[in-house]
Write a protein that binds this DNA or RNA. Structure first.
Lengths: 66, 66
DNA sequence: ACACTTAGTAAAATATATTTTACATTTAGA
DNA sequence: TCTAAATGTAAAATATATTTTACTAAGTGT
């Protein structure tokens, strides 16, 4: 699962820690998802998209293997 | 996390088993999510929404506790 | 150069999602 | 009514996400 978290963070100009704070997870969780170490839960994906003012599909993209 | 899976299934007129098949999970997984026993992964939520031709936010809704 | 914020990483523990197998119940159609 | 399909449920096993603690490295501004 690919994502545009880094780009959206840059647009909002917020750190991983700040985003983590806003969606109530740890900074490491944001880092891991941003680096695509694993995919988030639907709840977290929706919260992240909401912070960015985007739809889930605009931030996350399904890949072949998913 | 609330969802409109039952309604969307009714519109498409497909069973839980058929939906499970299309998104490559077991029938029990669809049943559990539909009955809100637990929330899906982002991957699964996106696949389900895609089957229904809807955005994730049109099928799933965040609740207070999420 | 120094201090500070940000980002990357890792291992162990915990929480949660998903599978598997199996059975019970409800619903719909012939 | 009989039968088949669809749904609900449950326990145990496995997979995956998330937390916690902690350390390292990289970038920024002064």
């Amino acid at each position: 699962m690919k994502n545009k978290i880094r780009i959206e963070r840059a647009i909002l100009n917020i750190s991983q820690a700040e985003l983590a704070d806003r969606v109530q997870v740890t900074r490491q969780t944001i880092n891991a998802i941003e680096l695509e170490k694993y995919a988030p839960s639907a709840v977290l994906a929706m919260k992240i998209a909401r912070v960015f003012g985007k739809k889930v599909e605009e931030v996350f993209e399904l890949e072949e293997g998913d």
